[in-house]
Design a protein around this nucleic acid. Structure first.
Lengths: 193, 193
DNA sequence: CGCCGAGTTGAACTGAATCAAGAAACGTGG
DNA sequence: CCACGTTTCTTGATTCAGTTCAACTCGGCG
């Protein structure tokens, strides 16, 4: 499978000339995150945005009973961050962990400013990304408010069929807000129909 | 109680001189929404942002079974919108309705551009608003994934004590993702403790 | 006075959680 | 390439939080 690098992503989405992107290429920082390792832990502050070049991350929290709750899966060409933590000077309540061995491009404040200054379209693009994120979060809240475990599962495999193949089933359950046992039963019951 | 107008809101948040804000004041459009009336209905497209000057709005969806699910309460100084619908050229799945008689300032694309051009700080402010929205949505998802009806209720009255006083209890239940009956019982049980 | 909408209460029901035990799949080293 | 231990998934029995449906109370208002 071929994935976009961050550079290619910029070219495709911002209508920026290859040659101009090269100017920033030298400034790109990458991080390699081995499977199971963390990019961010509860209590950290994060002002960077991470672009996933290869691999798969998950963002999750741990409640008082020690249960994990997955907020986001981030496969290739996705962004993850908890910029909110540094925006509001409050430590993040989330972990960001590599589900598979993962490589990310680090977009720090310096690079962010640089992109905004060099490419007028970038700010607009960034705003659009935020709107898209909001829409997705709202849709998920709506689903959590209205749909059964089964419906949420069906919705998940429809929207993220690839992710379902790449993560343990228990993580999907955690994303859906149900137990691994329940997800197993939901799947069995669907298979029998 | 004294509320900000949109103008005052700008002055307070953007460090803009009063005199400059006057320049845009003439361009402001207001809408009066009587109690129970709609600002937006399922299937509409919305590129405007609404700033609530006075009153209280709710944004909600209706599922296949006819049940309402409240996504947002927007009291004074809050923004509501489903700009996402016009951003992505998909009709909104949500209704925006006045819970009380409400007055909003309409921030349309024209005004938005004007604000961005005149006030460099506006774009940054706008981005920050979006981030704040994201943080709030994530926190809510996290709560829906991890907390019981009782915990969600306690969290709600802690964060929005004023809203709880202003809307029918059934709407709070709908926001929390439980039935009115369940909320009534949760409250009774808490009162007995 | 009587109606009406909002909230409460009760009893039966149900979807999903919990706890505990097995089965299958997986990868690592011999 | 097999054998073993670990992790992942499934299944069953039981419990529980929250739903459903129906009846009732209360306060406001014509």
């Amino acid at each position: 499978m071929k994935y976009y690098t961050f550079k290619e992503y910029l070219i495709n989405n911002l209508a920026i000339e290859n040659i101009h992107v090269d100017e920033i290429s030298d400034n790109l920082k990458f991080i390699d995150v081995p499977k199971g390792e963390y990019l961010l832990k509860e209590g950290d502050f994060c002002s960077d945005i991470f672009f996933v070049d290869k691999g798969l991350l998950r963002q999750y929290s741990i409640d008082e009973k020690g249960k994990e709750h997955i907020l986001t899966f981030a496969p290739e060409t996705w962004f993850v961050t908890d910029r909110e933590s540094s925006f509001f000077a409050q430590p993040t309540p989330y972990y960001i962990q590599a589900v598979e061995e993962t490589t990310v491009t680090v977009i720090d404040d310096h690079l962010l400013n640089m992109l905004s200054e060099h490419f007028p379209s970038f700010t607009k693009f960034n705003t659009q990304l935020l709107h898209s994120h909001i829409r997705q979060l709202q849709a998920r809240i709506n689903l959590l408010l209205s749909a059964s475990a089964e419906d949420r599962y069906l919705n998940f495999i429809k929207i993220y069929p690839d992710i379902f193949q790449r993560v343990p089933q228990a993580m999907v359950a955690s994303y859906l807000g149900i137990t691994p046992e329940s997800l197993s039963r939901v799947r069995r019951d669907l298979a029998m129909k």
